[in-house]
Design a protein around this nucleic acid. Sequence first.
DNA 1: GCGCTTTGCGTGCGCTCACAATAGTTGCAC
DNA 2: GTGCAACTATTGTGAGCGCACGCAAAGCGC
Lengths: 154, 154
Amino acid sequence: MTATDPALTALAQGWCALSLLHGKIEAHIERALQGRHDLSVREYSLLDVLSRQHDGDGGHLQMKQVADAVVLSQSATTRLVTRLEDRGLLERYLCPTDRRGIYTNVTEAGLTLLEEARPTNDAALRQALDEAAKNPEMAPLVRVVETLKAPVPA
Amino acid sequence: MTATDPALTALAQGWCALSLLHGKIEAHIERALQGRHDLSVREYSLLDVLSRQHDGDGGHLQMKQVADAVVLSQSATTRLVTRLEDRGLLERYLCPTDRRGIYTNVTEAGLTLLEEARPTNDAALRQALDEAAKNPEMAPLVRVVETLKAPVPA
DNA sequence: GCGCTTTGCGTGCGCTCACAATAGTTGCAC
DNA sequence: GTGCAACTATTGTGAGCGCACGCAAAGCGC
């Protein structure tokens, strides 16, 4: 097991490229969102996720599920939601059937800010992808991200 | 510009998938490396990068370039290198021609630890990819990472 | 040689995160 | 009803990161 397996080590190259691409994009978007809308990438992501689940009825994701959706610990999720709640962008309310669970709604102000920040986010993303495409190591990944867009165009 | 461009918003789907995949993999590898070798993903990545540049002559990456390679700020790179130096895994030495520049070498202990941790890293990566492949949203990305391995198989 | 600008690295401060421990809620066995 | 295990959200603590700043070295015009 201590011997270096070439097939596995080769995977590391792909992972390295993925990690690099992710880092570059995140840093680029972070700078744009932070500068123009005082939002971090995670905060934007959270608003985006919660605004989608809000569509149907009234918001059905518990904190635990939210944490999983944004790949964050429970404690970090609590504080992230608290921050946005303090800014009036979110609202917490207890689950009526299980008082352990807590649901969240995006307020009007939150939706407004989200839609306001979306062009910034998308433009920065487009820009970062173009920049990354120049690197042959990442180009294939960039193409997949671009073609992954339409889930079911029908 | 405030209007939502569908073509750009569609890109966000791909970026979201990429971000999710990255987060899952990183968390998985982090847990494995931290538990078995007391190394974070970034520390492992730094050792890996520095060990490669070390191949040719004696190490030619300055802190700034290292920071760019691991997508970290200069200050974070300083501290990261310092931590590994304190653990005896790295050595700093001043550039002979420009005393502002600082180069780094991986010590024997560092190389040993790196090769020791590599199987752990690769196995965790393989495992995380398999897990992620179950999600149709990420499957295409996973495939690219896997096929990206061989730069030039010839 | 002398001053000014630029470059590269290190440091103080505030913020966010992960981990561990805690409080509140539910469901089940008895 | 009581006790207990499982689950959810929050809070305390230590660590790492980014930003702004400071210091030292190098480049440059004089």
